[in-house]
Design a protein around this nucleic acid. Sequence first.
DNA 1: AGTCTTATGGATAAAATTATCCGCTACTGA
DNA 2: TCAGTAGCGGATAATTTTATCCATAAGACT
Lengths: 131, 131
Amino acid sequence: MYEKKIPKDLSCGLNIAIEVIGGKWKANLLANISKGIIRPSELHKSIPQASARVLNQQLSELELHGIVEKKIYNVLPPKSEYSLTKNAESVLEVLRAMKSWGEGYKEIFHELTQNSRIEGHDGIANQESCS
Amino acid sequence: MYEKKIPKDLSCGLNIAIEVIGGKWKANLLANISKGIIRPSELHKSIPQASARVLNQQLSELELHGIVEKKIYNVLPPKSEYSLTKNAESVLEVLRAMKSWGEGYKEIFHELTQNSRIEGHDGIANQESCS
DNA sequence: AGTCTTATGGATAAAATTATCCGCTACTGA
DNA sequence: TCAGTAGCGGATAATTTTATCCATAAGACT
């Protein structure tokens, strides 16, 4: 028997940022869209590690959060396209800052963590899908 | 029956950044430590929403990732103190960038999401524990 | 002897996130 | 008629992350 329930403080700017860009594939999706890869099927080809379903979910959240927009063409077979909103610009800057830091920290990070994991990650693979 | 297993691309700087600072209480802990709140019990008082256990776990990860250091005094009752490493400086800058963006985006965010949630968050509470 | 203090971590459960499978739509072309 | 295409999303399972409960240690204080 437990007593408490779930909080989640979204009055804090930092938590909002994490909420918006923290999803597993979101940064990747944004990078691709900014590159011009804008249709769901193309995005899926570009990020084959994730299923189309999952990418869809993450795109929906990005849309809900005002980072991307979706245009649905009422044709068959279906066609839809994503584009970045004007809010996305500032997000991409933040992402760049994060990425830049992470790149610089990569070596230290792996040195520190290699002993605690059992050699289980992808190594240097997927550089292209890296956002 | 499923076929695939779990990936997780840590060759990407961005994923590393998220891995390091993405934990629910990490930014908060770092903010507190940089403020001079450095003992586990103090940190817990400062962040009562989380249990001491959880804070401990997150601190361990921060330590493993090279962001904080821990000094254990061999006395009784037990005493230990955390401090930021030199790596933490650049992390805090990234966090500031994220927070700054999130602060500016807060209104839009809440406007966009209020209709999809059932009034479930803490509102403007916990401003002090906000990192 | 009983209680309080402070930090730690095992066992376990709840909650949140991500993944898989599958079916549906409606047209195109073989 | 059957397969292929492109996008969507329900149901459900696996995985990961957070949370809760509890026990231990060992001295100080009442």
